[in-house]
Write a protein that binds this DNA or RNA. Sequence first.
DNA 1: CGTATAGTTGCTGGTAGCAACCAACTGGAG
DNA 2: CTCCAGTTGGTTGCTACCAGCAACTATACG
Lengths: 159, 159
Amino acid sequence: MITTATADELLELLRTINRARPTRLGPDAGDMPVWTFTVLGLLAREGEQRLGQVAAHLDVDPSVASRQVATLEQLGYVTRRPDPADGRAQLLAITPEGLAAREGYLAMRARWVAEALQGWDDAEVAHLVARLKQLVEDLHCAIAAHQRPAGRATARSAS
Amino acid sequence: MITTATADELLELLRTINRARPTRLGPDAGDMPVWTFTVLGLLAREGEQRLGQVAAHLDVDPSVASRQVATLEQLGYVTRRPDPADGRAQLLAITPEGLAAREGYLAMRARWVAEALQGWDDAEVAHLVARLKQLVEDLHCAIAAHQRPAGRATARSAS
DNA sequence: CGTATAGTTGCTGGTAGCAACCAACTGGAG
DNA sequence: CTCCAGTTGGTTGCTACCAGCAACTATACG
Protein backbone atom coordinates (compact mmCIF):
# COMPACT_ATOMS: atom_id res chain seq x y z
CA MET A 1 0.00 0.00 0.00
CA ILE A 2 1.31 3.36 -1.00
CA THR A 3 0.90 6.31 1.31
CA THR A 4 -0.43 9.62 0.11
CA ALA A 5 2.87 11.27 0.90
CA THR A 6 4.77 8.85 -1.28
CA ALA A 7 2.29 9.23 -4.09
CA ASP A 8 2.68 12.97 -3.79
CA GLU A 9 6.39 12.70 -4.07
CA LEU A 10 6.13 10.37 -6.98
CA LEU A 11 3.78 12.49 -9.02
CA GLU A 12 5.63 15.62 -8.18
CA LEU A 13 8.75 13.91 -9.43
CA LEU A 14 7.12 12.98 -12.69
CA ARG A 15 6.14 16.59 -13.15
CA THR A 16 9.66 17.71 -12.43
CA ILE A 17 11.01 15.31 -14.96
CA ASN A 18 8.70 16.73 -17.52
CA ARG A 19 9.95 20.20 -16.91
CA ALA A 20 13.57 19.19 -16.72
CA ARG A 21 13.61 17.37 -20.00
CA PRO A 22 14.67 19.73 -22.77
CA THR A 23 12.76 19.59 -26.02
CA ARG A 24 15.52 21.14 -28.03
CA LEU A 25 19.26 20.82 -28.01
CA GLY A 26 21.70 23.64 -28.09
CA PRO A 27 23.78 24.58 -31.12
CA ASP A 28 26.25 21.85 -30.22
CA ALA A 29 23.86 19.47 -31.88
CA GLY A 30 22.59 21.75 -34.60
CA ASP A 31 19.81 23.11 -32.43
CA MET A 32 17.44 20.34 -33.29
CA PRO A 33 14.40 19.11 -31.47
CA VAL A 34 15.17 16.06 -29.37
CA TRP A 35 12.71 13.86 -31.19
CA THR A 36 15.03 14.07 -34.16
CA PHE A 37 17.38 11.72 -32.41
CA THR A 38 14.65 9.62 -30.99
CA VAL A 39 13.56 8.80 -34.51
CA LEU A 40 17.08 8.46 -35.82
CA GLY A 41 17.96 6.20 -32.93
CA LEU A 42 15.05 3.98 -33.67
CA LEU A 43 15.98 3.66 -37.31
CA ALA A 44 19.61 3.13 -36.42
CA ARG A 45 18.88 0.37 -33.93
CA GLU A 46 16.05 -1.38 -35.66
CA GLY A 47 16.92 -0.79 -39.28
CA GLU A 48 14.44 0.01 -41.98
CA GLN A 49 11.00 0.66 -40.62
CA ARG A 50 7.63 1.60 -41.93
CA LEU A 51 6.22 4.84 -40.76
CA GLY A 52 3.48 3.08 -38.89
CA GLN A 53 6.08 1.04 -37.05
CA VAL A 54 7.91 4.17 -36.08
CA ALA A 55 4.73 5.75 -34.82
CA ALA A 56 3.91 2.64 -32.84
CA HIS A 57 7.39 2.44 -31.33
CA LEU A 58 7.28 6.05 -30.26
CA ASP A 59 3.66 5.73 -29.20
CA VAL A 60 2.53 8.76 -31.13
CA ASP A 61 -0.12 9.38 -33.72
CA PRO A 62 0.92 8.46 -37.25
CA SER A 63 0.38 12.04 -38.27
CA VAL A 64 3.00 13.17 -35.81
CA ALA A 65 5.47 10.61 -37.06
CA SER A 66 4.67 11.60 -40.61
CA ARG A 67 5.59 15.21 -40.00
CA GLN A 68 8.70 14.38 -38.07
CA VAL A 69 9.90 12.04 -40.73
CA ALA A 70 9.14 14.61 -43.42
CA THR A 71 11.39 17.04 -41.62
CA LEU A 72 14.14 14.47 -41.29
CA GLU A 73 13.86 13.67 -44.95
CA GLN A 74 14.25 17.32 -45.84
CA LEU A 75 17.37 17.39 -43.72
CA GLY A 76 18.66 14.40 -45.59
CA TYR A 77 18.79 12.26 -42.48
CA VAL A 78 16.38 9.62 -43.66
CA THR A 79 15.30 8.26 -47.01
CA ARG A 80 12.07 6.66 -47.99
CA ARG A 81 11.54 3.96 -50.51
CA PRO A 82 8.35 2.19 -51.39
CA ASP A 83 7.92 -1.06 -49.59
CA PRO A 84 8.32 -3.74 -52.24
CA ALA A 85 5.82 -5.85 -50.35
CA ASP A 86 3.15 -3.19 -50.15
CA GLY A 87 2.85 -0.20 -52.41
CA ARG A 88 1.03 1.88 -49.87
CA ALA A 89 3.76 1.64 -47.33
CA GLN A 90 7.24 3.05 -47.37
CA LEU A 91 10.40 1.94 -45.72
CA LEU A 92 12.33 4.57 -43.87
CA ALA A 93 16.04 4.24 -43.47
CA ILE A 94 18.66 6.39 -41.89
CA THR A 95 21.22 7.92 -44.23
CA PRO A 96 24.95 8.25 -43.62
CA GLU A 97 24.31 11.89 -42.81
CA GLY A 98 21.72 10.81 -40.32
CA LEU A 99 24.13 8.37 -38.77
CA ALA A 100 26.76 11.06 -38.57
CA ALA A 101 24.35 13.43 -36.90
CA ARG A 102 23.41 10.72 -34.48
CA GLU A 103 27.04 10.02 -33.72
CA GLY A 104 27.60 13.65 -32.92
CA TYR A 105 24.57 13.69 -30.71
CA LEU A 106 25.57 10.54 -28.88
CA ALA A 107 29.03 11.89 -28.28
CA MET A 108 27.71 15.12 -26.94
CA ARG A 109 25.16 13.38 -24.81
CA ALA A 110 27.70 10.99 -23.41
CA ARG A 111 29.84 13.95 -22.47
CA TRP A 112 27.21 15.76 -20.52
CA VAL A 113 25.65 12.71 -19.00
CA ALA A 114 29.07 11.71 -17.75
CA GLU A 115 29.54 15.14 -16.33
CA ALA A 116 26.09 15.37 -14.80
CA LEU A 117 26.19 11.93 -13.23
CA GLN A 118 29.76 12.01 -12.03
CA GLY A 119 28.94 10.70 -8.62
CA TRP A 120 26.72 7.94 -9.90
CA ASP A 121 27.48 4.32 -10.35
CA ASP A 122 26.42 2.87 -13.65
CA ALA A 123 24.96 -0.24 -12.09
CA GLU A 124 22.96 1.80 -9.66
CA VAL A 125 21.53 4.01 -12.37
CA ALA A 126 20.70 1.00 -14.47
CA HIS A 127 18.95 -0.60 -11.54
CA LEU A 128 17.06 2.56 -10.76
CA VAL A 129 15.98 2.95 -14.33
CA ALA A 130 14.80 -0.62 -14.55
CA ARG A 131 12.72 -0.34 -11.41
CA LEU A 132 11.26 2.95 -12.38
CA LYS A 133 10.43 1.69 -15.81
CA GLN A 134 8.40 -1.03 -14.19
CA LEU A 135 6.71 1.42 -11.94
CA VAL A 136 5.83 3.82 -14.69
CA GLU A 137 4.48 0.99 -16.73
CA ASP A 138 2.19 0.00 -13.89
CA LEU A 139 1.04 3.56 -13.51
CA HIS A 140 0.50 3.87 -17.20
CA CYS A 141 -1.70 0.82 -17.31
CA ALA A 142 -3.80 2.13 -14.49
CA ILE A 143 -4.21 5.50 -16.15
CA ALA A 144 -5.21 3.86 -19.38
CA ALA A 145 -7.70 1.69 -17.56
CA HIS A 146 -9.21 4.73 -15.95
CA GLN A 147 -9.35 6.96 -18.95
CA ARG A 148 -10.10 4.66 -21.80
CA PRO A 149 -13.57 3.52 -20.79
CA ALA A 150 -14.65 7.13 -20.44
CA GLY A 151 -13.90 8.11 -23.99
CA ARG A 152 -11.10 8.25 -26.44
CA ALA A 153 -8.99 5.32 -27.42
CA THR A 154 -5.62 5.52 -29.04
CA ALA A 155 -6.15 5.74 -32.73
CA ARG A 156 -4.04 2.85 -33.81
CA SER A 157 -5.44 0.35 -31.37
CA ALA A 158 -8.48 0.01 -33.57
CA SER A 159 -7.31 -3.16 -35.22
CA MET B 1 30.99 6.52 -15.30
CA ILE B 2 27.74 5.94 -17.08
CA THR B 3 27.65 3.76 -20.15
CA THR B 4 25.92 4.81 -23.32
CA ALA B 5 23.46 1.99 -22.95
CA THR B 6 22.41 3.13 -19.51
CA ALA B 7 22.11 6.72 -20.65
CA ASP B 8 19.96 5.50 -23.50
CA GLU B 9 17.70 3.66 -21.14
CA LEU B 10 17.51 6.60 -18.84
CA LEU B 11 16.59 9.14 -21.47
CA GLU B 12 14.20 6.79 -23.13
CA LEU B 13 12.55 6.35 -19.79
CA LEU B 14 12.22 10.06 -19.27
CA ARG B 15 10.54 10.29 -22.63
CA THR B 16 8.18 7.50 -21.70
CA ILE B 17 7.27 9.24 -18.50
CA ASN B 18 6.45 12.32 -20.44
CA ARG B 19 4.07 10.42 -22.63
CA ALA B 20 2.54 8.44 -19.82
CA ARG B 21 1.69 11.41 -17.65
CA PRO B 22 -1.83 12.56 -18.35
CA THR B 23 -2.49 16.27 -18.63
CA ARG B 24 -6.14 15.97 -17.83
CA LEU B 25 -8.13 13.90 -15.43
CA GLY B 26 -11.26 11.98 -16.20
CA PRO B 27 -14.72 13.06 -15.15
CA ASP B 28 -14.11 11.49 -11.74
CA ALA B 29 -12.28 14.65 -10.86
CA GLY B 30 -14.35 17.11 -12.82
CA ASP B 31 -12.28 16.66 -15.96
CA MET B 32 -9.77 19.26 -14.95
CA PRO B 33 -6.23 19.76 -16.11
CA VAL B 34 -3.76 18.24 -13.70
CA TRP B 35 -2.03 21.52 -13.01
CA THR B 36 -5.18 22.55 -11.19
CA PHE B 37 -4.25 20.28 -8.37
CA THR B 38 -0.61 21.10 -8.57
CA VAL B 39 -1.44 24.70 -7.79
CA LEU B 40 -4.06 23.83 -5.22
CA GLY B 41 -1.67 21.46 -3.55
CA LEU B 42 0.95 24.12 -3.32
CA LEU B 43 -1.46 26.58 -1.75
CA ALA B 44 -2.81 23.92 0.58
CA ARG B 45 0.60 22.89 1.79
CA GLU B 46 2.36 26.23 1.92
CA GLY B 47 -0.54 28.52 2.70
CA GLU B 48 -1.01 31.96 1.23
CA GLN B 49 1.41 32.66 -1.55
CA ARG B 50 2.13 35.42 -3.95
CA LEU B 51 1.75 34.65 -7.57
CA GLY B 52 5.43 35.05 -8.17
CA GLN B 53 6.10 32.49 -5.46
CA VAL B 54 3.75 30.06 -7.08
CA ALA B 55 5.41 30.53 -10.43
CA ALA B 56 8.80 30.03 -8.85
CA HIS B 57 7.70 26.90 -7.01
CA LEU B 58 6.28 25.40 -10.15
CA ASP B 59 9.18 26.64 -12.20
CA VAL B 60 7.03 28.22 -14.85
CA ASP B 61 6.80 31.65 -16.35
CA PRO B 62 4.76 34.10 -14.27
CA SER B 63 2.43 34.52 -17.20
CA VAL B 64 1.59 30.86 -17.08
CA ALA B 65 0.92 30.95 -13.38
CA SER B 66 -1.16 34.05 -13.85
CA ARG B 67 -3.45 32.34 -16.31
CA GLN B 68 -3.77 29.20 -14.27
CA VAL B 69 -4.61 31.13 -11.16
CA ALA B 70 -7.13 33.22 -13.05
CA THR B 71 -8.88 30.03 -14.06
CA LEU B 72 -8.84 28.71 -10.53
CA GLU B 73 -10.24 31.98 -9.26
CA GLN B 74 -13.09 31.77 -11.74
CA LEU B 75 -13.81 28.30 -10.45
CA GLY B 76 -13.89 29.67 -6.94
CA TYR B 77 -10.99 27.51 -5.84
CA VAL B 78 -8.67 30.31 -4.88
CA THR B 79 -9.11 33.87 -3.72
CA ARG B 80 -6.80 36.79 -4.09
CA ARG B 81 -6.36 39.65 -1.70
CA PRO B 82 -3.92 42.51 -1.96
CA ASP B 83 -0.76 41.94 -0.06
CA PRO B 84 -0.90 44.38 2.86
CA ALA B 85 2.84 44.72 2.67
CA ASP B 86 2.98 45.52 -1.04
CA GLY B 87 0.10 46.86 -3.03
CA ARG B 88 1.35 45.44 -6.30
CA ALA B 89 1.36 41.93 -5.05
CA GLN B 90 -1.53 39.72 -4.14
CA LEU B 91 -1.83 36.84 -1.80
CA LEU B 92 -3.45 33.74 -3.17
CA ALA B 93 -5.24 31.39 -0.87
CA ILE B 94 -7.16 28.22 -1.41
CA THR B 95 -10.87 28.37 -0.64
CA PRO B 96 -12.96 25.72 1.12
CA GLU B 97 -14.25 24.72 -2.31
CA GLY B 98 -10.67 24.38 -3.47
CA LEU B 99 -9.85 22.26 -0.48
CA ALA B 100 -12.85 20.10 -1.14
CA ALA B 101 -11.88 19.65 -4.77
CA ARG B 102 -8.41 18.75 -3.67
CA GLU B 103 -9.74 16.25 -1.20
CA GLY B 104 -11.72 14.59 -3.90
CA TYR B 105 -8.73 14.50 -6.15
CA LEU B 106 -6.50 13.08 -3.48
CA ALA B 107 -9.01 10.39 -2.68
CA MET B 108 -9.37 9.41 -6.30
CA ARG B 109 -5.65 9.47 -6.82
CA ALA B 110 -5.02 7.41 -3.74
CA ARG B 111 -7.45 4.87 -5.05
CA TRP B 112 -5.87 4.40 -8.40
CA VAL B 113 -2.33 4.67 -7.19
CA ALA B 114 -3.09 1.94 -4.72
CA GLU B 115 -4.55 -0.14 -7.47
CA ALA B 116 -1.76 0.54 -9.92
CA LEU B 117 1.03 -0.08 -7.46
CA GLN B 118 -0.47 -3.06 -5.73
CA GLY B 119 2.69 -5.06 -5.84
CA TRP B 120 4.85 -2.24 -4.60
CA ASP B 121 6.18 -1.58 -1.18
CA ASP B 122 5.77 1.97 0.04
CA ALA B 123 9.28 2.17 1.38
CA GLU B 124 10.72 0.95 -1.85
CA VAL B 125 8.81 3.47 -3.91
CA ALA B 126 9.81 6.23 -1.54
CA HIS B 127 13.42 5.20 -1.82
CA LEU B 128 13.22 5.01 -5.58
CA VAL B 129 11.63 8.40 -5.80
CA ALA B 130 14.23 9.95 -3.55
CA ARG B 131 17.09 8.57 -5.58
CA LEU B 132 15.50 9.53 -8.84
CA LYS B 133 14.84 13.01 -7.61
CA GLN B 134 18.50 13.39 -6.91
CA LEU B 135 19.41 12.03 -10.31
CA VAL B 136 17.01 14.23 -12.18
CA GLU B 137 18.27 17.20 -10.28
CA ASP B 138 21.80 16.44 -11.35
CA LEU B 139 20.70 16.06 -14.92
CA HIS B 140 18.75 19.25 -14.77
CA CYS B 141 21.72 21.22 -13.55
CA ALA B 142 23.87 19.88 -16.32
CA ILE B 143 21.30 20.73 -18.94
CA ALA B 144 20.96 24.23 -17.60
CA ALA B 145 24.70 24.65 -17.59
CA HIS B 146 24.92 23.50 -21.19
CA GLN B 147 22.08 25.50 -22.59
CA ARG B 148 22.20 28.77 -20.75
CA PRO B 149 25.67 29.99 -21.72
CA ALA B 150 24.95 29.58 -25.41
CA GLY B 151 22.21 32.20 -25.34
CA ARG B 152 19.70 33.02 -22.72
CA ALA B 153 16.58 32.47 -24.80
CA THR B 154 15.53 28.87 -24.55
CA ALA B 155 14.65 28.15 -28.12
CA ARG B 156 13.61 31.28 -29.90
CA SER B 157 16.01 33.56 -31.61
CA ALA B 158 16.69 36.60 -29.52
CA SER B 159 17.89 38.83 -32.29
C1' DC C 1 -15.99 -3.73 -57.04
C1' DG C 2 -16.23 -2.88 -51.95
C1' DT C 3 -13.73 -2.75 -47.81
C1' DA C 4 -9.60 -2.28 -45.04
C1' DT C 5 -5.04 -0.29 -44.46
C1' DA C 6 -0.72 3.19 -45.00
C1' DG C 7 0.19 7.62 -45.02
C1' DT C 8 -0.61 12.83 -45.61
C1' DT C 9 -2.73 17.17 -44.68
C1' DG C 10 -5.92 20.53 -42.40
C1' DC C 11 -7.64 21.89 -38.35
C1' DT C 12 -7.95 22.37 -33.33
C1' DG C 13 -6.67 22.35 -28.38
C1' DG C 14 -3.52 22.86 -24.96
C1' DT C 15 0.86 24.51 -23.10
C1' DA C 16 4.65 27.49 -22.64
C1' DG C 17 7.50 31.62 -23.29
C1' DC C 18 8.77 36.40 -24.42
C1' DA C 19 7.64 41.23 -25.02
C1' DA C 20 5.01 44.95 -23.95
C1' DC C 21 2.36 47.00 -20.83
C1' DC C 22 0.26 48.83 -16.32
C1' DA C 23 0.43 49.63 -11.46
C1' DA C 24 2.64 50.29 -7.31
C1' DC C 25 6.87 50.55 -4.45
C1' DT C 26 11.64 52.70 -3.61
C1' DG C 27 15.06 56.03 -3.31
C1' DG C 28 17.27 60.25 -4.46
C1' DA C 29 17.18 65.32 -5.85
C1' DG C 30 15.23 69.44 -5.45
C1' DC D 1 7.57 67.08 1.34
C1' DT D 2 7.15 66.44 -3.47
C1' DC D 3 8.36 64.76 -7.71
C1' DC D 4 10.67 61.91 -10.79
C1' DA D 5 13.33 57.82 -12.25
C1' DG D 6 14.17 53.18 -11.81
C1' DT D 7 12.56 48.68 -10.12
C1' DT D 8 9.43 44.98 -9.28
C1' DG D 9 4.76 42.23 -9.34
C1' DG D 10 1.45 40.92 -12.38
C1' DT D 11 -1.47 40.74 -16.77
C1' DT D 12 -2.30 40.41 -21.62
C1' DG D 13 -1.13 39.72 -26.61
C1' DC D 14 1.30 37.25 -29.61
C1' DT D 15 3.88 33.28 -31.23
C1' DA D 16 5.77 28.62 -31.38
C1' DC D 17 5.37 23.88 -30.68
C1' DC D 18 3.46 19.52 -29.93
C1' DA D 19 -0.10 16.14 -30.28
C1' DG D 20 -4.43 14.32 -31.79
C1' DC D 21 -8.56 13.66 -34.66
C1' DA D 22 -10.96 13.86 -39.02
C1' DA D 23 -10.96 13.81 -43.74
C1' DC D 24 -8.76 12.45 -47.77
C1' DT D 25 -5.84 9.78 -51.30
C1' DA D 26 -3.88 5.74 -52.85
C1' DT D 27 -2.98 1.07 -52.69
C1' DA D 28 -3.99 -3.73 -51.35
C1' DC D 29 -6.97 -7.61 -50.63
C1' DG D 30 -11.02 -10.50 -50.98
